[in-house]
């Protein structure tokens, strides 16, 4: 059974790309790379322009005149090419970074600090349950020693140094666990390709 054109294209591109790691850099890989960079940038531009139309231009032409301001600010970005007007391009960038930093500050303060403090305020000793007590102590020790590691201007003498090292070990343990957990996702990127190759070969042979 001869596979359809689409799977020949998919296999051809897959082999050209994988030749970089399984063999070495070569013209076929360079061509596939140029194609990938081009199409993926094209896709980003298409999605951005569609989003610009649907959230900006259509409503503006439909009468929402306040949107003339962001459209004007967006056009200011192109002053970056002129020596005299170049600094004007900082204005639209300032709107974006103001919004972004604002979202980061309000999100970080709530989800990454406040909620974490709240979740860490668990009893340290749970009467009659030694395992739960050990767990609570481990979590609390981990939080406190890791935070101490990040005190840049406080040495705290020998004791402080030991707490910081403990904090670093707790973090390395967290990063190791994260590496193991993340490896699962990353290896699935290979399983997809292996499945495609095996299916293609079996369809050729049967």
């Amino acid at each position: 059974m001869i596979p359809a054109l689409e799977s020949w294209v998919a296999i051809g591109l897959t082999v050209a790309v994988l030749s970089y790691v399984l063999y070495r850099e070569n013209p076929a890989y360079r061509m596939a790379e140029a194609l990938f960079v081009g199409i993926s940038l094209g896709n980003v531009v298409v999605m951005a322009v569609r989003s610009l139309q649907s959230s900006g231009m259509n409503p503006l032409l439909g009468g929402n005149l306040t949107l003339a301001i962001p459209v004007a600010l967006g056009l200011l970005l192109f002053t970056v090419y002129s020596k005299r007007l170049g600094k004007l391009s900082q204005w639209p960038v300032a709107v974006m970074s103001g919004v972004g930093v604002g979202l980061a500050i309000r999100g970080a303060a709530h989800t990454y600090i406040y909620d974490q403090i709240k979740a860490s305020m668990q009893p340290v000793i749970i009467w009659g349950d030694p395992m739960a007590t050990l767990n609570a102590v481990l979590v609390l020790a981990g939080v406190v020693s890791t935070l101490t590691y990040f005190l840049f201007t406080v040495e705290g003498g020998a004791g402080g140094a030991r707490v910081k090292t403990t904090g670093r070990y707790f973090m390395m343990l967290f990063f190791g666990a994260m590496f193991g957990q993340v490896a699962m996702t990353r290896i699935t990127y290979i399983t997809g390709r292996a499945q495609l190759l095996v299916q293609f070969l079996t369809s050729l042979l049967t």
Binding site: A104, I105, A108, A109, Y112, I113, Q116, I117, A119, S120, N135, L138, V139, L140, A141, G142, V143, V144, S145, T146, L147, Y149, F150, G167, F170, M171, M172, L173, F174, F175, A177, M178
Partner: peptide, 20 residues
């Protein structure tokens, strides 16, 4: 879920403070 939670929280709180 437990042993690396402390390191996770400490790291997250520290970078969030730094980011703000």
């Amino acid at each position: 879920d437990i042993v690396s939670l402390g390191g996770n929280r400490g790291f997250t709180i520290a970078f969030a403070v730094g980011a703000i």
